[in-house]
């Protein structure tokens, strides 16, 4: 049967459109306006053309922050996705312990970013923190305020601690939706554990896993509070991620023009990567459907 196309339903999204315009589109337009002008305060602006874009594109500072950001997002995805799937595979399927695990796993997700940052900031300190103190007692040199490697390990472990549950919960939801018949068929065929995972569980989880990857990528790519509270972007600028650098530029130095150009390029990268993820996700769905 052919469905008739009726585009009138789109009018129902009008209220959302107005809200988004007010809270996102108009502020974004303002950023575009800032990006081609210079200001010395007092809401007085002077035309600067593409100068800020040119300056930013030729500035090692932005490329450095982008590189660190991509490295951060890449590393946490490489850890969180397999770890989350592993946890989901080993969670009880039903009964009291299933509910217990679900609640227990969602706990880190409920903690506000700045609190997570503070927890790890204190936890890692050599003088009063349990982690820092223990590592020092074991003779392992660890100081996230002076050693870039330690700082990186700290913010990555912190993010894994905070967000792996999200991947695990989504993967778990995907696993729960697989009918028993698939497992029974696999049993009859004497499929190995790996083959059950590879040909039944993984394909059936793919949809939610893509959502998990997209969410984790977006969140980690825009992360600000947690690393800012723990390392403040240091030592030096070794953990200065994109948004930390952006805030420094826009609010610390009040360089609105360069910061606007910076944030537009940041936005474009996010838009591009989200579009790629979204397209892959939609096409996976279609292939399954």
């Amino acid at each position: 049967m052919n469905k008739t196309v009726n585009q009138k339903a789109w009018f129902l999204v009008l209220p959302v459109l107005l809200l988004v315009a007010f809270s996102a589109v108009i502020p974004l337009m303002t950023v575009v306006n800032y990006s081609v002008q210079d200001t010395f305060g007092n809401n007085q602006f002077f035309w600067a053309g593409l100068e800020w874009f040119e300056e930013m594109l030729n500035d090692d500072r932005m490329w450095g922050a982008l590189g660190r950001q991509l490295m951060f997002s890449g590393i946490i995805l490489l850890i969180q996705v397999p770890l989350g799937v592993f946890v989901a595979l080993n969670m009880p399927k039903k009964g009291f312990w299933a509910s217990f695990c679900l609640v227990f796993m969602s706990l880190p997700l409920l903690i506000p970013w700045n609190v997570v940052g503070t927890i790890w900031q204190v936890f890692g300190r050599v003088d009063i923190g349990l982690l820092g103190h223990t590592l020092a007692a074991l003779g392992i040199e660890y100081n996230y305020t002076s050693d870039p490697f330690a700082a990186w390990v700290t913010i990555i472990v912190m993010d894994v601690w905070h967000w792996t549950s999200l991947v695990a919960l989504l993967a778990y939801a995907g696993l729960q939706s697989i009918p028993d018949a698939y497992y029974q068929a696999a049993k009859i065929d004497q499929a190995s554990r790996w083959k059950v995972f590879r040909f039944i569980e993984l394909p059936k989880m793919m949809g939610v896993l893509m959502i998990a990857i997209l969410l984790r990528f977006m969140d980690s790519f825009m992360i600000y509070t947690e690393p800012f509270v723990v390392t403040g972007g240091g030592p030096g600028s070794t953990t200065t991620l994109l948004s930390i650098d952006l805030v420094k530029m826009a609010l610390g130095q009040f360089d609105l023009g360069p910061a606007a150009a910076f944030s537009l390029m940041y936005f474009l990268v996010i838009l591009l990567i989200s579009w790629v993820f979204y397209t892959v996700m939609i096409n996976l769905d279609k292939r399954e459907g």
């Binding site: 337009m29 575009v32 306006n33 081609v36 002008q37 200001t39 809401n43 602006f45 035309w47």
Partner: peptide, 29 residues
């Protein structure tokens, strides 16, 4: 609108994008 720091080039930029969106919406309907 002063607070938005409008300039003619940026206004033109948005007008072009908005008219493209409107054109394509009309075309789609």
């Amino acid at each position: 609108m002063d607070w938005m720091a409008w300039t003619w080039p940026t206004a033109l930029f948005f007008i072009v994008i908005a008219s493209l969106l409107i054109t394509f919406t009309v075309l789609a309907i």
